[in-house]
Design a protein around this nucleic acid. Structure first.
Length: 200
DNA sequence: CTTTGGATCGTCT
DNA sequence: GACGATCCAAAGG
C-alpha cells in the first residue's frame, strides 16, 4: 500500500485496512500472507486507551513517527501485538491488527503455532496473529510501504467492505464505549472478543 | 457452553 | 510496585 493511504485519523484509516494483505518474508524466503479481517483504532493523545495518550516514551516512539511504520509491543509480558502507524509524523494514530485470515504460507504458520487444529484459529487474535507470522519486537519500526521490508502491506484487488461491522474495542479498561473496532462482516476468522455491535 | 486464574516482564508511576 | 490493546487450559453448569 502507498503511504498516502495511511495518512489520516486512525478511525478513518482502520476500516480501509480491512481485506488488505499482511505479507511476511521468512529468512528462507517463504512468504506468509494473511488477509486483515479485524482491526481497532487507537488515537494517541485523543484516546485514553492508547499507549501514547500520555505522550512520547521509549516504548511508543514508533507511533509518533511517520505513517506506514509497524508498531510492535509486548502484551502481558508474553505476547507480541502489531499496529500500523497512521496519521502524520508527530501524531500517534495507530491501527491494531487483531485478526488475519491465513492466505499463503499456512504450513509455516502451523509450525509457528504448533498444536492448532483449524486454520481459522491460527491468527484470529492480536497475539496469535504475531505468533503465526513470527512478528516480534525486532520488527518494531519496519516500513510497511517499502519493497525491501520483510513485512509489507499489500492490496490484491479485494476492496475493504463498504459497510464494515463496527463494535467497541476489546480488552481495554478506559474509553471502553468508543466504537472503534472494525470487522469484515460475518467473517469466521475474527477474534473471540464479543463487544456490543454498534448500529449505524 | 461460560468462567476463572496463571503465565510473565517491560514500562511507567 | 502495579498493571496490562492476551491466550490457554482447567474447572464448572
Amino acid at each position: 500500500m502507498r503511504r498516502s493511504d495511511l495518512v489520516g485519523d486512525a478511525t478513518d484509516v482502520a476500516p480501509r485496512l480491512l481485506n488488505a494483505l499482511l505479507s511476511v518474508r521468512d529468512a528462507d524466503g517463504v512468504l506468509r500472507v494473511g488477509r486483515i479481517v479485524e482491526v481497532e483504532a487507537y488515537r494517541g493523545s485523543h484516546d485514553p486507551a492508547s499507549h501514547a495518550y500520555r505522550g512520547l516514551t521509549r516504548r511508543n516512539a514508533t507511533m509518533f513517527g511517520p505513517p506506514g511504520s509497524l508498531y510492535v509491543y509486548r502484551s502481558y509480558g508474553v505476547h507480541w501485538c502489531a499496529n500500523v502507524v497512521a496519521g502524520v509524523d508527530g501524531t500517534a494514530e495507530a491501527v491494531l491488527l487483531r485478526a488475519v485470515e491465513p492466505v499463503a504460507g499456512v504450513a509455516s504458520m502451523r509450525v509457528a503455532r504448533a498444536g492448532i487444529a483449524r486454520d481459522v484459529d491460527l491468527a484470529n487474535g492480536p497475539g496469535k496473529l504475531c505468533a503465526a507470522l513470527s512478528i516480534t519486537g525486532e520488527d518494531d519500526g519496519t516500513d510497511l510501504c517499502s519493497r525491501r521490508s520483510r513485512i509489507r502491506l499489500l492490496r490484491d484487488g479485494v476492496d475493504a467492505p463498504i459497510r464494515p461491522t463496527v463494535t467497541t474495542r476489546v480488552g481495554i479498561t478506559r474509553a471502553v464505549d468508543r466504537p472503534w473496532r472494525f470487522l469484515v462482516p460475518d467473517h469466521p476468522g475474527v477474534s473471540r472478543g464479543r463487544p456490543s455491535t454498534v448500529a449505524r
